[in-house]
Design a binder for these strands. Structure first.
Length: 890
DNA sequence: GCAAGGTC
């Protein structure tokens, strides 16, 4: 039987390329979770049937088991020893099922994942999904390729190897370390500070070995600025008039910090009165054309010249890529493969209305190969693939595309050549100079005009000439602090220190912005280039805004806090330390679990020390933020002390009881207000009415205490919880509103307010108590919405049930003028499913159908009463005093 | 509500 070969790539585009090459473009393609390309060709000397498909990045990601997901009952320090599990990154994509199905009947598996550690790790994810075992006679091969070209693909096919388990394990190690360290610190500091201050305005106060050093760079610069002490300085500038030019000469000493000494030199020059030409030199200089464009450089230019943040830039680039206008935008490489088809790429641009002429000129007058760059073995530099116009792309995407084209054309253009003339003078024993520049070959700067050299003409001087000084200026200045860190500088720092990757740098920067640790300041930039012969469109690219990152009080307090307690925590070395440790695993020099244990133990000690020393960070917060007791407005009464609690509206929204010193989180979306001063029969807390945003937002009552500490077990879907039915995932702000409460006599519970089963899911349709006059039912689990007769004075549930379908009988008090009842009667009782009148008046707003078919009971009896109590609050544990440890000790 | 890494 002919062998069947399954090949798996990291993304659909690579699967397509591989299949095209190996089949000679003679393949059939069918849809699946990802596309599958099939064809027959030779494999290891015999005729074989091929299936080529792909994953979409990692198939799995790590997380904690359900038992460790509850913030209130899990001590963060226990996370270091907690088990972890791998779950599908995107369950909806069904990648695992897809691979398993495609692998059925296959005798050989060839892994075409990207050739880096992450790719090696994904190899083993794929192996797991396919169920291939080396023991069952089926063979597993690893294809190693450095680019997705025909030559490299064929070369890889002829030298199939084995996947590298050590490299894959090093990624497993990083995942576990990042997860445990990040989540432990994040949960601890979030709970600590949000439980103490009311105006942090931060839903989560996160920590991570990439994001925190990223923030650290921004705060470092901020601290430099605040510590800066300006100094006065003086600069001597003599002027001469010569052959019609007025020239301002530069002093060799540049500037002096002493007023008297500067004045003395000034007097000497004035006394001399003559400038003597001592040397005239001319040099031919050159400014090199760029090498290929990689992601980091694209992000930097986009931020400093286009005013686009990294997040936006990557979104735009992704779109340009999927539409076929540019090549793959996530790459470290600045070198093109030797086989790259520059002619073809230029050819693709010749009809472009903006660049066509320039591209044509390069084609006809010959082009230079791009300057050598670095080949990271991933993807070629970012290159235009297709011509596009502004109309077809939209403004922002066009600006980015335009830059990518300009850069590409620049790489193929000649270097810029210019003459640099330096004239040196002497007067009063002091040296001066002036410099002129003249371009001889503009080269790439004619397509990238913002990089052009500034030209300056000088008259011809002869050595020994003496020229009268027309005036002498002594300019006074102040040294000035640096500006806030520009995003472009930050990207350079991250790259230099190995913080993040080409694909994740933008995510880390976006994180520290979204979490309110830094604020983006937009600076207008004016291009100083006026020598552009091309359309003004090109020039306008560079006249946008630059972005700088100013840390917020929260960001500053965090970093200064780490610096007080353990500066390792916010230094970039923390990433290199982890990288160094896992590299030992990747190289097979250390055992995976030993390394993980060792690194986690160090971080556990650091964590423990941090917890003990948190007062030092807290002192900074105290100086900056208001305690909960001073925040918010009085809203509702606490059931324990019967005093009013304060509602704090900044994120995360919560109630604070100053007497009990307790915090109760409320739903984070929508608004809350007091609900008719009604109280919960279980705990005496006053009920709140929460209204979700939007015209069709639900309104529902909730008890603050029950919402945070649900009193009944077995509630199968907490409000706001993921729909995966993971009922133990019960973080703060994810709890039990009254519409999920199975209390049998409380008038607000699902027992009293529930009407019938939801036709869409396993939930219950509940009467919205404040929806008049547009009365409606909504599902307590999904977004199903049913409108009831409009304009009724009152609609309420009764204690009666429909004998036919077990739904709750409702009572409607119609408006006198619009009542559909005979003889102007207004009161009507019935089942909304079985009563013909009522059923004809209800309407399904969201959901497919609404009828008696397929309905169930209203789900009573769910949940069982349980006493209050149990574990509350975060245990601090009884850790021994652990010394702070430095990585450098290991 | 948490990390960082793939990719869409």
């Amino acid at each position: 039987m002919a062998p069947k070969v399954l090949m798996v790539a990291e993304k659909p585009s690579i699967a397509l390329s591989i299949a095209s090459v190996l089949s000679g473009a003679q393949m059939s393609t069918r849809r699946g979770s990802t596309e599958v390309h099939e064809f027959d060709a030779m494999f290891l000397g015999s005729r074989a049937h091929y299936k080529v498909t792909s994953v979409i990045g990692h198939v799995f990601s790590v997380d904690f088991p359900a038992a460790f997901q509850d913030w209130t009952t899990t001590n963060p320090s226990d996370l270091f020893q907690a088990p972890i599990l791998k779950k599908e990154t995107n369950p909806k994509a069904h990648i695992c099922r897809h691979l398993s199905q495609e692998a059925r009947g296959c005798t050989h598996l060839v892994l075409w994942l990207d050739c880096d550690r992450e790719g090696e790790n994904i190899c083993f994810e794929v192996i797991e999904c396919t169920g291939f075992h080396t023991s069952d006679g089926r063979r597993i091969y690893r294809a190693r390729f450095s680019s997705v070209t025909e030559k490299d693909i064929l070369k890889a096919m002829n030298s199939l190897a084995e996947p590298n388990r050590d490299e894959a394990l090093s990624v497993d190690a990083r995942q576990e370390i990042d997860l445990k360290v990040g989540v432990a610190f994040t949960r601890f500091q979030t709970s600590y500070f949000n439980g103490k201050y009311g105006n942090l305005d931060a839903r989560v106060i996160s920590y991570g070995p990439c994001q925190t050093p990223t923030l650290g760079f921004c705060v470092d610069r901020y601290l430099q600025i605040t510590m800066f002490k300006p100094e006065k300085f003086w600069m001597l500038h003599p002027y001469i008039m010569y052959k019609g030019y007025e020239l301002k000469l530069e002093w060799e000493r540049s500037r002096l910090f002493d007023a008297d000494v500067s004045a003395m030199f000034r007097n000497r020059i004035i006394e001399d009165g003559i400038m003597k030409v001592v040397r005239v030199s001319e040099k031919l200089e050159s400014k090199a054309r760029p090498s290929g464009l990689n992601t980091v450089n694209l992000l930097k230019v986009a931020s400093s010249a286009l005013g686009f943040g990294p997040q936006l830039t990557m979104q735009l680039a992704e779109r340009l890529y999927t539409q076929g206008f540019i090549s793959y935008p996530r790459t470290e490489s600045t070198a093109y493969p030797s086989s790259f088809d520059f002619k073809g790429t230029l050819g693709a641009l010749v009809h472009n209305p903006v660049f066509g002429g320039y591209a044509q000129k390069l084609l006809t007058e010959s082009y230079n190969k791009p300057r050598a760059g670095t080949d990271a073995g991933d993807h070629p530099p970012i290159t235009p693939m297709h011509s596009a116009s502004e109309d077809s792309l939209g403004n922002d995407a066009w600006k980015l595309y335009q830059y990518i084209c300009q850069h590409f054309l620049g790489t193929l253009s000649p270097d810029c050549k210019y003459r640099r003339i330096k004239v040196e003078f002497e007067s009063g024993g002091e040296q001066f100079q002036c410099v002129g520049q003249l371009a001889t070959v503009k080269g790439f700067t004619s397509i990238m005009p913002w990089l052009a050299i500034s030209e300056k003409n000088l008259p011809e001087f002869a050595v020994g000439e003496k020229i009268e000084i027309s005036k002498v200026e002594l300019d006074e200045g102040n040294t000035s602090p640096p500006d806030y860190l520009s995003e472009s500088e930050l990207i350079s720092l991250m790259e230099k220190h190995g913080i993040g990757t080409d694909a994740s740098i933008s995510v880390h920067i976006n994180n520290i912005c979204e979490r309110n640790y830094v604020q983006v300041l937009l600076y207008a930039l004016i291009s100083n280039s006026s020598c552009c012969r091309l359309s003004s469109l090109l020039l306008s690219v560079m006249v946008q805004a630059g972005r700088r990152l100013a840390p917020t009080p929260l960001g500053i307090s965090l970093i200064r806090g780490y610096q007080c307690i353990d500066s390792d925590l916010c230094l970039p070395d923390i990433r290199s330390f982890i990288e160094h440790q896992i590299t030992l695993v990747a190289k097979g020099q250390a055992d995976h679990s030993m390394v993980v244990q060792h690194v986690l133990e160090q971080f556990r000690r650091k964590f423990s020390y941090f917890v003990k020393q948190i007062d030092n960070m807290d002192a900074l917060f105290e100086a900056q933020f208001s305690p909960l007791s001073d925040s918010g407005r009085l809203l509702s009464k606490c059931g324990k002390c019967l005093r009013y609690m304060k509602y704090i509206s900044t994120q995360p929204a919560r109630l604070y009881c100053g007497t009990c010193e307790e915090v109760y989180y409320v739903p984070q979306k929508g608004t809350v207000k007091l609900y008719k001063e009604l109280t919960c029969p279980l705990d005496n807390f006053e009920l709140l009415l929460c209204s979700l945003p939007g015209p069709e937002g639900k309104s529902f009552p909730l008890c603050p205490y029950c919402f945070n500490c649900p009193p009944f077990e077995g509630i199968d879907a907490f409000f706001g919880a993921p729909k995966t039915g993971d009922s133990t995932k019960l973080g703060k702000g994810v709890g039990m509103p009254c519409f999920l409460c199975p209390h049998t006599t409380c008038p607000h519970s699902v027992i009293a307010q529930g009407v019938c089963a939801c036709p869409e899911c396993s939930g219950t349709l509940v009467l919205d108590p404040v929806s008049a006059p547009k009365w409606r039912l909504y599902c307590n689990m999904c977004n199903c919405l049913v409108s009831l007769p409009e304009g009724a004075h009152r609609i309420s549930t009764t204690q009666d049930k429909c004998p036919e379908c077990d739904s709750t009988i409702i009572e409607v008090d119609f408006n006198k003028k619009t009542t559909p009842l005979k003889d102007g009667a207004t009161l009507h009782k019935g089942c909304i499913l079985c009563d013909e009148l009522l059923h004809s008046l209800v309407e399904m707003k969201h959901g497919r159908s609404f009828s008696r078919h397929g309905r169930r009971g209203r789900g009573s009896g769910r949940g069982r009463g349980r006493g209050r109590g149990g574990y509350r609050g975060r245990g601090r544990g009884s850790n021994k005093q652990d010394p702070k440890m430095s990585f450098r000790d290991f």
